[in-house]
Design a protein around this nucleic acid. Structure first.
Lengths: 153, 153
DNA sequence: GTCAATTCAATTGCACACAATTTAATTGAC
DNA sequence: GTCAATTAAATTGTGTGCAATTGAATTGAC
């Protein structure tokens, strides 16, 4: 029996189906995650990318915009206005590095540091909504990180 | 020996580390994917979300904006201007449904249909850059889809 | 049949993302 | 030491995403 070979059934056609696309799975899951965080972050007066910036700063205060960008895979076109809004909100300061005037160092204010306490409960809420245990979530995290690392090198 | 219990080492502190966050893994992997597609889609004159819309339309032509939104998890605030740009580019038409004037049906033009042929090579390019075989990619796709489905219900 | 509730797309306003360019500061080959 | 090359942040312009609102069309309880 001859295999059908209409355009509808070629391998490359199968690969173009939306639900076979890894890129769309990641895209839609990431947007869904952002929506899940929305009400939790609204309480803190933060957007999702601003929260990511704070995660970095809570680990290491006083980083340059470029270092923040390397950590978050974002460029100055995204970070500069974002950090200005966070400065206006009183969460960070932006000061030129005295030893290298090209660099702008981002530092947490007391308010910015204090937000960490209120953020501590967020990961638990997210894990619950994800309906998976810690080990499962970490395993998936590592797989997705590995993929990202392959794509960014 | 007593375990240390400084703030730096609590479980909730660990959970706030950027590299332990599933949300950031998905976010950064999704952005990396978009950048990988950029040069491939530039050749076709498409943006990444426009490409996603075409994936839907190549599977099923003549869908309403709301149906496209359900499929892509996007709302009319995103899709209306995106589809207008695709209409301007001559890829789709936007016409009110005669049987329900609230609905706007999106149909491919000949140009929009023709783009599919040129898009067929894209999934292979992406898979190569991802450095994983088809089975591996599909397995990860299903895991991420499962997570997304949990988050969107 | 009527009208309140619902549905659908469009609009408005805000916040990303990012390519491309600009400006200022630093580095390094000579 | 000088200046071309590099680096860092900011700026500009385009295209998403999405909350909230608007306006038009449809539905459904009565």
């Amino acid at each position: 029996m001859a295999t059908r070979n209409t355009p509808r059934n070629t391998l490359s056609e199968q690969a173009l189906l939306l639900d076979n696309q890894l890129c769309f799975a990641l895209y839609s899951a990431s947007l869904a995650m952002t929506k899940l965080y929305k009400p939790l972050l609204d309480e803190l007066g933060l957007t999702y990318p601003q929260y990511l910036a704070l995660l970095v700063l809570w680990e290491q205060d006083g980083v340059a915009v470029s270092e923040l960008g390397e950590r978050l895979y974002l460029d100055s076109g995204t970070l500069t206005p974002l950090l200005k809004r966070m400065e206006t909100a009183g969460l960070v300061t932006r000061l030129r590095d005295a030893t290298d005037e090209r660099r702008v160092l981002i530092r947490l204010t007391a308010d910015g540091r204090a937000l960490k306490t209120r953020a501590l409960r967020i990961p638990g809420c997210v894990l619950e909504a994800s309906q998976c245990d810690v080990a499962e979530a970490l395993a998936l995290t590592h797989q997705v990180q590995t993929l990202r690392n392959r794509l960014t090198t």
